[in-house]
Design a protein around this nucleic acid. Structure first.
Lengths: 240, 240
DNA sequence: TGTACATCAGTGAACGCGCGTTCACTGATGTAC
DNA sequence: TGTACATCAGTGAACGCGCGTTCACTGATGTAC
């Protein structure tokens, strides 16, 4: 019955996992372009055609790895966020930024897979959209908390948004961070792109010979971006 | 004599150019990983082994394309800079930022080649270092002009730099922008990484569905970064 | 519980492809005297 | 200016490689009655 059926299904689920793990190992060692179904099968002691019982094509395997990568980095970021007191807004921003960088340094090829140049001939299917959004959404949650608590420095606002940009930011806010004003969301997008731009440059070798090692530049930039976001330092604990 | 020798050498130089052009065409159409010596030769009506008279290996052809890409974007940025009155510091920053983005949108695969994930198995040789530095150096020249003219907003400085970061930034400044203080260079690095981070996200599809089209977000971010850099609006023309 | 059938996982051979690189060669271009 | 030789560009065949995917198949696992 269901117990028996799960026997087969459990085997299937396990092998699916093993295939992904071996693929991830090869991804880490060689990069996405070098990832081959045949090599994965070889390493698993299977014949290459057997993989087609699990993934209908190489692209589907890639998609699975992309989704896993997004989930993996998002989990780290969300955990880092959750580990701080919710009211320590600046600390949460720091923690999330650090989590992104640490994940990227620990998984450079997975980072390149999702944040580097697109794989030629591959176009990301709809199923990657949700996982891809988790990190920016986590950042926007922080911004919304900050806005709601009234601690966002108001003079951090720059010039007013153009009508189109105002509409775009309000639509995004309505979808994932209701109540967040467009100009605040625009600041977040700047911080978000700065963060990933800095990490990409570090990982892809553009800081070598200038700001390398990059730990301190990173920490500095995170503080400057916290200022731009308008995040104040942690409030003192409530008076006793 | 030299006239005769140049006949052969001129043919050689021309064919070298044609090979690079065809390679660039394929790069633009298919991306770097799809670039193949055989396809280039085919398109040129040559036999594939003939290319080895011009480039000792595929990697050398790639290197040539990488260098060309860096030179191409740098030329655009420098031209954009030179087209503004030197004293219009903020206008120069805007113009250079726009030049980077426009070049990137016009040459997405070349952009990906130099600013995206590294090509697996390829490591950039020394000769790419100079060309790669031209854009950041152009930005630092602007910063130095701004600093020298005394118009850099002083309150744009954030927290003091850590000792290591101070040393790193001063070393870079000493090498390419003598006289520029470390904290100002750190601001530039933030603007630089934000700029390329934003463009990479746009090009690699991370803004689709949120801030896309990105023109206005881009323009807005450029202004915010100009503020962070401390660039004041253009001074009025000198009194008559 | 036992039998007859359906589903599924994995095999092994094959198809067809394109790639980078090497090598011995021919014939044209350039050089020295 | 003319001849003998050296240099160089381009040819064509071949080597050895690995890839994604298809297909008919065997045998084990699961299902229905």
């Amino acid at each position: 019955m269901s117990a028996t059926r799960t026997a087969r299904e459990r085997a299937r689920a396990e092998l699916t996992q093993e295939i992904k793990e071996e693929a991830r190992r090869q991804l880490a060692a060689e990069g996405a372009q070098r990832l081959s179904l045949r090599a994965v099968a070889r390493e698993l002691g299977m014949v290459s055609s057997a993989l087609y019982r699990y993934f209908p094509s190489r692209d589907d395997l890639l998609t699975a790895l992309i989704i896993d990568a997004y989930q993996s980095i998002a989990a780290r970021v969300e955990d880092a966020d959750a580990a701080r007191p919710p009211a320590d807004l600046r600390g949460r921003w720091r923690a999330m930024s650090r989590a992104v960088r640490e994940w990227a340094l620990a998984h450079p090829h997975e980072y390149a897979l999702v944040y580097g140049s697109p794989v030629p001939g591959y176009s990301a299917p709809q199923e990657t959209v949700g996982p891809a959004g988790r990190v920016p959404i986590a950042l926007l949650r922080l911004a919304r908390d900050a806005w709601a608590s009234g601690t966002l420095s108001p003079d951090a606002d720059g010039p007013p948004l153009s009508p189109l940009l105002a509409r775009q930011t309000e639509q995004v806010a309505a979808a994932v961070a209701p109540g967040l004003p467009g100009p605040v969301l625009a600041r977040c997008a700047i911080g978000w792109t700065q963060l990933f731009g800095m990490i990409s440059f570090e990982l892809f070798g553009h800081l070598v010979g200038s700001l390398d090692p990059s730990d301190e530049f990173f920490a500095h930039a995170v503080e400057r971006m916290a200022d731009l976001l308008g995040l104040l330092p942690a409030p003192p604990p409530p008076a006793a």
